[in-house]
């Protein structure tokens, strides 16, 4: 990085005539952070606490404060739809993260082979990240609908027996969510990996080549291990996308057929807002937050530990 070069003269020029206004200076960083801290405390933690309190009440259409203990959690555990939604999240999240990583890595490696028009291809792979599913949901619904989209198109080319009806099949509807989500995020992961590849020191590779290692072997043994930090960042970003997935389900399957492709985020929304069960919805939100914590804690741990090392 060219940081040190461009910064050095500035630092030298920053010699100040002013005396230490020490106290204020010591407090300024905290003062600058104070509003953000206050905002976090109120809008994130305050609201979480509020949600937790609501999950202990029998709030229905609007919040009320009639406490029922953990009854809402018990109801949630007995709710078939909640289990479907949770299982779906595991299936969807697992496949989504795995496919995005695999596809992203593959495309990044291929793009790193001195490709003509690399910039254009990269933009094409990356652009879905710019679009919301509110925008692309209609198209995806079309493409995946057997009567209107890909199935109809391929059949009209003469392949009468072609079947692609995942969207309307309760057993496979959740996979259509995976397709659309992978489409959106895998290009982004590709870009992360590509940047990671470019950051690897050439001399390591040269050395490996001189040792006579084959190309796939070099990648497997040398390059991919170097990308571990990227994998880590990508997994974090992807899993938070997976947990938050909401627009996707609403736009693509509406949770259907039946509630076969429901996810916790849509479950929570449906119960808290459509079905006047804010108590139950809040309980499901707390469990979702628990899931988020399970992912976040290792991330934070590693972030802060890294920092101590660096």
């Amino acid at each position: 990085m060219s940081l040190s070069r461009s910064v050095a003269p500035l630092a030298a020029g920053a010699a100040s005539r002013r005396s230490h206004s020490g106290r204020l200076q010591a407090w300024l960083p905290k003062l600058v952070l104070a509003p953000s801290i206050a905002i976090s405390l109120l809008f994130v933690y305050g609201f979480m606490l509020w949600t937790f309190i609501l999950s202990l009440t029998n709030s229905r259409m609007l919040p009320s404060y009639e406490f029922v203990g953990f009854a809402q959690y018990a109801r949630l555990m007995a709710n078939d739809r909640w289990w479907v939604a949770s299982t779906n999240l595991v299936v969807f999240g697992g496949l989504f993260v795995a496919i995005c990583l695999a596809l992203g890595l593959l495309l990044a490696i291929l793009l790193d082979q001195r490709i003509r028009q690399e910039g254009a291809l990269r933009t094409i792979y990356l652009y879905p990240m710019a679009l919301s599913f509110i925008v692309t949901g209609v198209v995806w619904k079309w493409l995946l609908n057997p009567g209107l989209g890909i199935q109809a198109m391929v059949r009209s080319w003469g392949f009468e027996n072609f079947r692609f009806d995942w969207l309307v099949n309760p057993d496979t509807a959740v996979y259509t969510l995976v397709i659309a989500a992978v489409w959106q995020a895998s290009g982004f992961v590709m870009a992360l990996f590509l940047a990671g590849l470019r950051g690897i020191d050439d001399s390591i590779l040269k050395a490996a080549q001189l040792d006579g290692a084959s190309l796939p072997r070099i990648y497997w043994r040398v390059v991919i291990p170097c990308l571990r930090p990227v994998v880590f960042s990508a997994v974090m970003i992807l899993s938070h996308i997976a947990i938050k997935s909401f627009d996707l389900v609403v736009a693509l399957t509406g949770g259907g057929p039946g509630y076969a492709s429901d996810l916790p985020a849509t479950f929570m929304y449906a119960h808290a807002f459509t079905r006047a069960q804010i108590g139950l919805g809040s309980a499901s939100a707390m469990l979702m937050l628990g899931g988020v914590l399970a992912i976040l804690i290792p991330y934070l741990y590693s972030e802060l530990r890294n920092r101590r090392h660096g």
Partner: peptide, 14 residues
């Protein structure tokens, strides 16, 4: 950092 990960449906009503 936790604010990055909070599902937005949770905060609608408050």
């Amino acid at each position: 950092l936790f604010g990055c990960f909070i599902p937005f449906q949770v905060v609608l009503l408050p």
